[in-house]
């Protein structure tokens, strides 16, 4: 008998008492109550708590803000679907574009200073930004290897609680949920930021 058949039969045998199960009570919150301004405020509070740098700017001012953030870097990478207009004011650093036609390799990504991506949705209550590999967010590797992640988030993509975000996401897309820069609590259970993932997380919330 194959291991598969064997295991499935063991389980069936274990369940021969046909355990009765109740329907799942879903009395927890399924939607938030905050308005747009309060969502932004809560998200900022949470991200700052995680030691992320947060900038709330009008969409029209995003290019200037990005230019300021990227002023000190020598190179950065963007996914091919990121709106070029956002980068119009960035002058100086070398821009690498990761696309299906030209995929950057690990060494190439390790050599750039920063990555700029969009985001799919964010949860204000937990301070979590979700990337789902859409064209403005790119492959998982590009937002991982560079040491600084600059993430652009439309205020209209902020929800309050996790169930609202889950409803917006497609399970089968590769996802990365990000709540602050990389961190560890492995030494005496005290949180410190900056381990293997990007050590700097800049979030631009576009209102």
């Amino acid at each position: 008998m194959s291991a598969r058949a064997d295991i499935l039969e063991r389980i069936a045998s274990a369940l021969r008492d046909h355990p009765a199960v109740e329907p799942v009570p879903r009395a927890y919150r399924s939607a938030g109550t905050l308005d747009r301004a309060a969502l932004v405020e809560q998200l900022v509070d949470r991200l700052v708590d995680y030691k992320a740098n947060v900038f709330v700017v009008a969409a029209a001012d995003a290019p200037a803000q990005l230019a300021t953030l990227l002023a000190g870097v020598s190179s950065y990478v963007v996914p091919h679907g990121l709106d070029e207009g956002l980068l119009a004011a960035v002058d100086g650093p070398v821009r690498e574009v990761d696309s299906p036609e030209r995929r950057l390799d690990v060494a190439g990504l390790d050599a750039v200073d920063a990555v700029v991506t969009g985001a799919a949705v964010a949860v204000s209550e937990t301070g979590t930004i979700m990337l789902d590999g859409s064209d403005d967010q790119g492959r998982r590797i590009i937002s991982l290897v560079p040491d600084r992640h600059i993430c652009l988030l439309r205020a209209s993509d902020i929800v309050q609680i996790l169930p609202e975000a889950i409803a917006r996401l497609d399970a089968t897309r590769p996802q990365t949920w990000i709540s602050g820069p990389s961190a560890t609590s492995d030494i005496e259970l005290e949180r410190v930021e900056g381990v293997h993932g990007p050590r700097t997380l800049d979030v631009l919330i576009l209102t």
């Binding site: 937990t126 996802q175 990365t176 709540s179 602050g180 993932g197």
Partner: peptide, 12 residues
């Protein structure tokens, strides 16, 4: 004891 852990990876 965090509101959310820094990273969650999801793949299919």
């Amino acid at each position: 004891g965090e509101r959310m852990n820094p990273y969650t990876s999801v793949w299919t």
